[in-house]
């Protein structure tokens, strides 16, 4: 192997063409396996780079979309209806009253229905007695 470094290309070709030199059995297969391994290693070295490249693109796109949505959210923020906190509070108080009245109606209707059912049940029980 050390001698190969000192020999010229022509000298190496001459040795290769010399049919008196015996090629060990399975040498060709070993060479092919070596080349296949080399090709696989080269591809494996390229693959992480491609993955990093694709991941970078995906991350950049996600960042851009996120920024876009953030800006959109900021832009679409509505304006306060009231500039006076007293008026805003008055509206809040009125809303609580509205919510209460609606809830009260619901509770009252449940109570009314429950009472109707109870009355009917008592009538049936009285008839059975």
């Amino acid at each position: 192997m050390k001698e190969m470094d000192t020999l010229s290309i022509k000298e190496l070709e001459a040795i290769a063409l010399d049919s008196s030199v015996e090629v060990p059995e399975g040498f060709g297969q070993s060479i092919r396996q070596g080349l296949d391994t080399l090709a696989f290693l080269e591809e494996s070295a390229v693959r992480p780079r491609r993955i990093r490249y694709a991941a970078g693109i995906a991350a950049s796109l996600a960042l851009l979309v996120g920024i876009g949505l953030g800006v959109n959210g900021y832009v679409s923020r509505p304006k306060d209806t009231f500039s006076d906190p007293q008026q805003a509070y008055a509206m809040l108080e009125a809303s609580f009253s509205l919510i209460s009245s609606k809830m009260d109606k619901g509770v009252a209707s449940v109570t009314h229905e429950t009472e109707a059912v109870l009355t009917k049940t008592n009538e049936i029980i009285d008839k059975l007695k």
Partner: peptide, 29 residues
Amino acid sequence: KSIYNKFSDEQGVSAVYISPSMFKLIGKL
């Protein structure tokens, strides 16, 4: 917010929005 944004400017709609900043001011009343 999207429901408010969609309908608040339409004719025949009454809409009210109170922001977090306004709530901070209300909290000081």
